[in-house]
Design a protein around this nucleic acid. Sequence first.
DNA 1: CTAATCACCTGAAGGC
DNA 2: TGCCTTCAGGTGATTA
Length: 267
Amino acid sequence: MPELPEVETVANELRSSVIGKKIEYIEALWSRSFDNRDDNLLTEQVIESIDRRGKYLILNLTRSFLIIHLRMTGQLLYFDNESDADFNDYIRVIIKFSNGLLLFRDVRKFGRIYHVHDAQSFLTHVGPDALDKKVTASVFKNSLAASKMNIKAFLLSQKYISGMGNIYTDEALFASGIYPAKTADSIKRRKAENLFLNMQGILKASIQNMGSTISDYRDPSGNKGTNQLYFNVYGREGQPCKVCKTPIKKIKFAGRGTHFCPRCQRA
DNA sequence: CTAATCACCTGAAGGC
DNA sequence: TGCCTTCAGGTGATTA
Protein backbone atom coordinates (compact mmCIF):
# COMPACT_ATOMS: atom_id res chain seq x y z
CA MET A 1 0.00 0.00 0.00
CA PRO A 2 2.10 2.87 1.14
CA GLU A 3 5.06 4.24 -0.75
CA LEU A 4 7.30 7.16 0.18
CA PRO A 5 4.65 9.93 0.13
CA GLU A 6 2.19 7.93 2.24
CA VAL A 7 4.85 6.98 4.79
CA GLU A 8 6.02 10.60 4.91
CA THR A 9 2.44 11.71 5.59
CA VAL A 10 2.17 9.15 8.40
CA ALA A 11 5.50 10.35 9.85
CA ASN A 12 4.39 13.98 9.79
CA GLU A 13 1.11 13.20 11.52
CA LEU A 14 2.77 11.04 14.14
CA ARG A 15 5.25 13.81 14.89
CA SER A 16 2.37 16.04 15.90
CA SER A 17 0.61 13.37 17.96
CA VAL A 18 3.04 11.00 19.68
CA ILE A 19 6.35 12.84 20.14
CA GLY A 20 7.15 13.06 23.86
CA LYS A 21 4.67 10.35 24.80
CA LYS A 22 5.65 7.60 27.20
CA ILE A 23 4.91 3.96 26.36
CA GLU A 24 2.76 2.30 29.01
CA TYR A 25 2.60 -1.10 27.35
CA ILE A 26 2.68 -2.83 23.98
CA GLU A 27 0.54 -5.81 23.08
CA ALA A 28 0.76 -7.85 19.88
CA LEU A 29 -2.60 -9.41 19.07
CA TRP A 30 -0.95 -11.09 16.04
CA SER A 31 2.48 -12.00 17.33
CA ARG A 32 4.24 -11.98 13.95
CA SER A 33 3.33 -8.32 13.44
CA PHE A 34 5.73 -7.34 16.24
CA ASP A 35 9.31 -8.50 15.95
CA ASN A 36 10.68 -8.07 19.44
CA ARG A 37 14.23 -8.84 18.41
CA ASP A 38 15.20 -8.91 22.06
CA ASP A 39 13.15 -8.79 25.19
CA ASN A 40 14.20 -5.31 26.14
CA LEU A 41 11.56 -3.50 28.06
CA LEU A 42 9.80 -0.88 26.01
CA THR A 43 7.73 0.28 28.94
CA GLU A 44 8.59 3.76 30.23
CA GLN A 45 10.50 4.69 27.07
CA VAL A 46 9.56 7.98 25.42
CA ILE A 47 9.25 8.65 21.69
CA GLU A 48 11.90 11.32 21.24
CA SER A 49 11.68 11.88 17.47
CA ILE A 50 10.60 10.25 14.22
CA ASP A 51 12.56 9.67 11.02
CA ARG A 52 11.80 7.99 7.72
CA ARG A 53 13.98 6.17 5.24
CA GLY A 54 12.27 4.95 2.11
CA LYS A 55 9.16 3.16 3.30
CA TYR A 56 10.49 2.60 6.83
CA LEU A 57 9.34 4.68 9.79
CA ILE A 58 11.89 5.05 12.56
CA LEU A 59 10.62 5.93 16.03
CA ASN A 60 13.59 7.04 18.11
CA LEU A 61 12.95 6.00 21.70
CA THR A 62 14.88 6.86 24.84
CA ARG A 63 17.12 3.78 24.64
CA SER A 64 16.17 1.91 21.45
CA PHE A 65 14.13 2.11 18.25
CA LEU A 66 10.85 0.95 16.82
CA ILE A 67 11.15 0.49 13.06
CA ILE A 68 7.87 0.09 11.23
CA HIS A 69 7.10 -1.09 7.70
CA LEU A 70 3.45 -0.93 6.64
CA ARG A 71 3.89 -3.22 3.60
CA MET A 72 0.58 -3.57 1.74
CA THR A 73 -2.28 -2.82 4.13
CA GLY A 74 -0.66 -1.53 7.32
CA GLN A 75 -2.09 1.54 9.04
CA LEU A 76 -1.05 3.41 12.16
CA LEU A 77 -4.12 4.93 13.79
CA TYR A 78 -3.82 7.40 16.63
CA PHE A 79 -6.47 8.11 19.25
CA ASP A 80 -6.40 10.63 22.09
CA ASN A 81 -9.29 8.77 23.67
CA GLU A 82 -9.20 5.01 23.94
CA SER A 83 -12.99 4.89 23.71
CA ASP A 84 -12.82 6.04 20.06
CA ALA A 85 -10.87 2.94 18.96
CA ASP A 86 -12.26 -0.33 17.60
CA PHE A 87 -9.93 -3.10 18.78
CA ASN A 88 -11.61 -5.83 16.76
CA ASP A 89 -11.10 -4.26 13.36
CA TYR A 90 -7.94 -6.05 12.10
CA ILE A 91 -5.87 -4.51 14.91
CA ARG A 92 -2.56 -6.41 15.17
CA VAL A 93 -0.58 -4.34 17.70
CA ILE A 94 -1.62 -1.97 20.49
CA ILE A 95 0.78 0.71 21.72
CA LYS A 96 -0.66 2.36 24.78
CA PHE A 97 0.78 5.65 25.99
CA SER A 98 0.20 7.22 29.36
CA ASN A 99 -2.10 9.52 27.42
CA GLY A 100 -3.19 8.35 23.97
CA LEU A 101 -3.20 5.17 21.93
CA LEU A 102 -1.54 4.04 18.70
CA LEU A 103 -3.03 1.02 16.90
CA PHE A 104 -1.35 -0.94 14.14
CA ARG A 105 -4.14 -2.13 11.84
CA ASP A 106 -3.14 -4.51 9.05
CA VAL A 107 -5.63 -6.64 7.12
CA ARG A 108 -3.08 -8.77 5.28
CA LYS A 109 -0.61 -9.11 8.20
CA PHE A 110 2.45 -8.36 6.04
CA GLY A 111 3.46 -5.25 7.98
CA ARG A 112 6.00 -5.36 10.80
CA ILE A 113 7.09 -3.43 13.84
CA TYR A 114 10.69 -4.24 14.73
CA HIS A 115 12.23 -3.38 18.07
CA VAL A 116 15.97 -2.86 17.59
CA HIS A 117 18.94 -1.33 19.38
CA ASP A 118 20.75 -0.13 16.30
CA ALA A 119 18.58 1.42 13.62
CA GLN A 120 21.47 2.12 11.26
CA SER A 121 22.70 -1.45 11.07
CA PHE A 122 19.14 -2.73 10.76
CA LEU A 123 18.70 -0.59 7.64
CA THR A 124 22.04 -1.23 5.96
CA HIS A 125 20.35 -3.08 3.11
CA VAL A 126 18.09 -0.09 2.39
CA GLY A 127 19.41 2.49 -0.05
CA PRO A 128 19.28 6.25 0.53
CA ASP A 129 15.86 7.87 0.49
CA ALA A 130 14.68 9.06 -2.92
CA LEU A 131 14.32 12.59 -1.52
CA ASP A 132 17.58 12.56 0.45
CA LYS A 133 19.74 15.56 -0.47
CA LYS A 134 22.72 13.31 -1.00
CA VAL A 135 20.87 11.63 -3.86
CA THR A 136 21.75 14.19 -6.51
CA ALA A 137 21.01 13.95 -10.22
CA SER A 138 24.59 12.93 -10.78
CA VAL A 139 24.51 10.20 -8.13
CA PHE A 140 21.29 8.92 -9.66
CA LYS A 141 22.67 8.93 -13.20
CA ASN A 142 25.78 7.08 -12.12
CA SER A 143 23.83 4.34 -10.38
CA LEU A 144 21.66 3.89 -13.47
CA ALA A 145 24.74 3.64 -15.65
CA ALA A 146 26.12 0.89 -13.42
CA SER A 147 23.05 -1.37 -13.60
CA LYS A 148 21.83 -3.77 -16.24
CA MET A 149 18.43 -4.19 -14.59
CA ASN A 150 15.32 -3.03 -16.35
CA ILE A 151 14.40 0.43 -15.11
CA LYS A 152 11.13 -0.65 -13.49
CA ALA A 153 12.80 -3.32 -11.35
CA PHE A 154 15.65 -0.91 -10.62
CA LEU A 155 13.34 1.73 -9.18
CA LEU A 156 11.36 -0.88 -7.22
CA SER A 157 14.39 -2.57 -5.71
CA GLN A 158 15.00 -0.17 -2.74
CA LYS A 159 18.70 -0.98 -2.98
CA TYR A 160 19.90 2.01 -5.03
CA ILE A 161 17.32 4.50 -3.84
CA SER A 162 14.43 3.73 -1.50
CA GLY A 163 10.80 4.77 -1.30
CA MET A 164 9.57 4.18 -4.83
CA GLY A 165 6.77 1.62 -5.22
CA ASN A 166 4.58 0.40 -8.05
CA ILE A 167 2.43 3.54 -8.43
CA TYR A 168 5.11 6.21 -8.42
CA THR A 169 7.43 4.11 -10.57
CA ASP A 170 4.80 3.82 -13.30
CA GLU A 171 3.99 7.53 -13.00
CA ALA A 172 7.64 8.63 -13.11
CA LEU A 173 8.41 6.47 -16.16
CA PHE A 174 5.38 7.85 -17.98
CA ALA A 175 6.34 11.43 -17.17
CA SER A 176 9.81 10.71 -18.54
CA GLY A 177 8.70 8.86 -21.68
CA ILE A 178 10.63 5.73 -20.71
CA TYR A 179 9.50 2.20 -21.55
CA PRO A 180 9.47 0.14 -18.31
CA ALA A 181 11.55 -2.72 -19.75
CA LYS A 182 14.35 -0.42 -20.84
CA THR A 183 17.68 -1.33 -19.27
CA ALA A 184 18.91 1.19 -16.68
CA ASP A 185 22.34 1.56 -18.26
CA SER A 186 20.81 2.19 -21.69
CA ILE A 187 19.06 5.38 -20.58
CA LYS A 188 20.94 8.40 -21.89
CA ARG A 189 22.22 10.82 -19.28
CA ARG A 190 19.88 13.56 -20.44
CA LYS A 191 16.89 11.23 -20.12
CA ALA A 192 18.15 9.93 -16.76
CA GLU A 193 18.34 13.46 -15.39
CA ASN A 194 14.78 14.04 -16.57
CA LEU A 195 13.66 10.85 -14.81
CA PHE A 196 15.34 11.99 -11.61
CA LEU A 197 13.56 15.36 -11.67
CA ASN A 198 10.20 13.80 -12.52
CA MET A 199 10.55 11.18 -9.81
CA GLN A 200 11.27 13.75 -7.10
CA GLY A 201 8.61 16.12 -8.41
CA ILE A 202 5.96 13.40 -8.40
CA LEU A 203 6.89 12.28 -4.87
CA LYS A 204 6.83 15.84 -3.54
CA ALA A 205 3.50 16.62 -5.19
CA SER A 206 1.98 13.53 -3.64
CA ILE A 207 3.25 14.53 -0.20
CA GLN A 208 1.49 17.87 -0.73
CA ASN A 209 -1.67 15.86 -1.48
CA MET A 210 -1.26 13.71 1.65
CA GLY A 211 -0.44 10.64 -0.43
CA SER A 212 -2.59 8.41 -2.63
CA THR A 213 -5.47 6.26 -1.42
CA ILE A 214 -6.48 3.37 -3.70
CA SER A 215 -8.26 1.32 -1.07
CA ASP A 216 -6.58 0.81 2.30
CA TYR A 217 -4.28 3.73 2.88
CA ARG A 218 -5.25 6.09 5.71
CA ASP A 219 -3.19 8.51 7.73
CA PRO A 220 -3.10 8.25 11.56
CA SER A 221 -6.27 10.35 11.79
CA GLY A 222 -8.07 8.00 9.41
CA ASN A 223 -7.98 10.42 6.47
CA LYS A 224 -7.45 9.38 2.84
CA GLY A 225 -4.95 11.04 0.56
CA THR A 226 -6.03 12.81 -2.63
CA ASN A 227 -3.07 12.25 -4.95
CA GLN A 228 -4.83 9.37 -6.75
CA LEU A 229 -6.90 12.04 -8.51
CA TYR A 230 -3.81 13.04 -10.46
CA PHE A 231 -2.54 9.69 -11.76
CA ASN A 232 -1.69 9.68 -15.45
CA VAL A 233 -1.27 5.93 -15.98
CA TYR A 234 -1.73 3.95 -12.75
CA GLY A 235 -5.18 2.35 -12.71
CA ARG A 236 -6.05 3.89 -16.10
CA GLU A 237 -5.88 0.77 -18.31
CA GLY A 238 -7.86 1.29 -21.52
CA GLN A 239 -8.42 4.98 -20.84
CA PRO A 240 -6.90 7.56 -23.21
CA CYS A 241 -3.43 8.86 -22.51
CA LYS A 242 -3.72 12.42 -21.21
CA VAL A 243 -1.01 13.48 -23.65
CA CYS A 244 -1.71 11.60 -26.90
CA LYS A 245 -5.10 9.86 -26.41
CA THR A 246 -3.64 6.39 -27.06
CA PRO A 247 -5.26 3.84 -24.68
CA ILE A 248 -3.10 3.13 -21.62
CA LYS A 249 -1.83 -0.44 -21.55
CA LYS A 250 -1.39 -2.68 -18.54
CA ILE A 251 0.99 -5.62 -18.62
CA LYS A 252 2.56 -7.91 -16.06
CA PHE A 253 6.20 -6.90 -15.77
CA ALA A 254 8.87 -7.29 -13.10
CA GLY A 255 6.24 -9.26 -11.21
CA ARG A 256 3.90 -6.28 -10.98
CA GLY A 257 1.00 -4.74 -12.83
CA THR A 258 2.68 -2.18 -15.06
CA HIS A 259 0.85 0.74 -16.68
CA PHE A 260 2.24 2.75 -19.58
CA CYS A 261 1.36 4.60 -22.75
CA PRO A 262 2.56 2.57 -25.76
CA ARG A 263 3.02 5.75 -27.77
CA CYS A 264 4.64 8.09 -25.23
CA GLN A 265 6.84 5.30 -23.86
CA ARG A 266 8.22 3.53 -26.91
CA ALA A 267 10.30 0.38 -26.60
C1' DC B 1 24.46 -10.06 -11.46
C1' DT B 2 19.67 -10.36 -13.21
C1' DA B 3 15.14 -12.60 -13.53
C1' DA B 4 11.42 -15.36 -12.26
C1' DT B 5 8.58 -17.78 -8.81
C1' DC B 6 6.88 -18.66 -4.44
C1' DA B 7 5.76 -17.34 0.24
C1' DC B 8 3.59 -14.50 3.57
C1' DC B 9 -2.17 -13.15 4.27
C1' DT B 10 -6.93 -11.44 3.47
C1' DG B 11 -10.63 -9.59 0.85
C1' DA B 12 -12.66 -7.79 -3.37
C1' DA B 13 -13.99 -8.46 -7.99
C1' DG B 14 -14.88 -10.95 -12.17
C1' DG B 15 -15.99 -15.27 -14.80
C1' DC B 16 -19.00 -19.17 -15.17
C1' DT C 1 -26.29 -17.84 -5.05
C1' DG C 2 -21.77 -19.95 -4.98
C1' DC C 3 -17.43 -21.58 -6.36
C1' DC C 4 -12.97 -20.63 -8.50
C1' DT C 5 -9.33 -17.70 -10.13
C1' DT C 6 -6.85 -13.52 -10.17
C1' DC C 7 -5.33 -9.45 -8.32
C1' DA C 8 -3.74 -5.87 -4.78
C1' DG C 9 0.61 0.93 -2.72
C1' DG C 10 5.74 -4.97 -0.64
C1' DT C 11 9.71 -7.56 0.10
C1' DG C 12 12.69 -11.62 1.19
C1' DA C 13 14.17 -16.31 0.12
C1' DT C 14 15.05 -19.52 -3.28
C1' DT C 15 15.80 -21.22 -7.75
C1' DA C 16 17.33 -20.70 -12.75
